[in-house]
Design a protein around this nucleic acid. Sequence first.
DNA 1: CGAGGTACCTGACAGC
DNA 2: TGCTGTCAGGTACCTC
Length: 274
Amino acid sequence: MPELPEVETIVRGLQQEVIGSRIVGVIVREDMLLANRDQKKFIETIAGRVIKSVKRRGKYIIIGLSGNYSLVIHLRMTGKLLIKPSEAGFDKHSHVIFRLEGDRDLRFNNIRKFGRIYVVEGDNWQQAGSLSELGPEPLAHDFTVDKFKERISRRTTGIKSLLLKQDFIAGMGNIYTDEALYRAGISPYRSADSLTDKEITALYQAIRKVLKLGIKYNGTTFSDYVNSNGESGEFQEKLQVYQHDGEDCARCHHTIQKDKIAGRGSHFCPNCQR
DNA sequence: CGAGGTACCTGACAGC
DNA sequence: TGCTGTCAGGTACCTC
């Protein structure tokens, strides 16, 4: 479910809630979510450690633990990290529970069970899925328009597909890709190598704009995305094309269209995105 | 490298 | 009510 702004919102919430807390116990109710499905080893490695830091890289959440270990969590489509009182009954989809001191739990909910938790020792980040192969952070200060132009050059793939590739740019997902292309006035059917210099610049600015706005409004909530405190995001109210198919484009009043592009439902205005 | 397909899993919703 | 098909904020893996 979450893309960069949702993950960033969750990370900021967790930084307030769990840094300094000791993990006094771990309950694994569904070991599918453990990348290495060895739940005994997982519990032994994690239990007793103190949460030192919470960071984001792309859509990954990195929880630094005492003793130079890290928990790396990817929420995939339906993952949530929730803070709950330990006495609260388990939700059907609470699959991994980190019991913290102070009778609070950090619970990893995941309806579709696509999410994964990796344990990394030291800086062996290659143990955490594709974390070590991620492209640049789009909001980093050193991610300049020139860097974006350089990375996009010589790529012949469709622009929609390229923006979704995490090794090209980290953190974009289906919503923010559609919104960025709309704001840049670029059709999702375009190939990367057909973009003019001016269009690449517009796309760069649009990507940064939609991600920053997404973070400002605490992410996008459709059905059940919430931050660690159970609060919804507000960015869905700012969406211009995503899930607005059949409605009028705010700029030109043509009808927003939805096609399957790069295997994903893609929303765009066929008139002002060329 | 690129395109397109499948797979992983559960739930919501539309249509019959 | 219940069946079927489709879709979903993601990614890995496969073939051509």
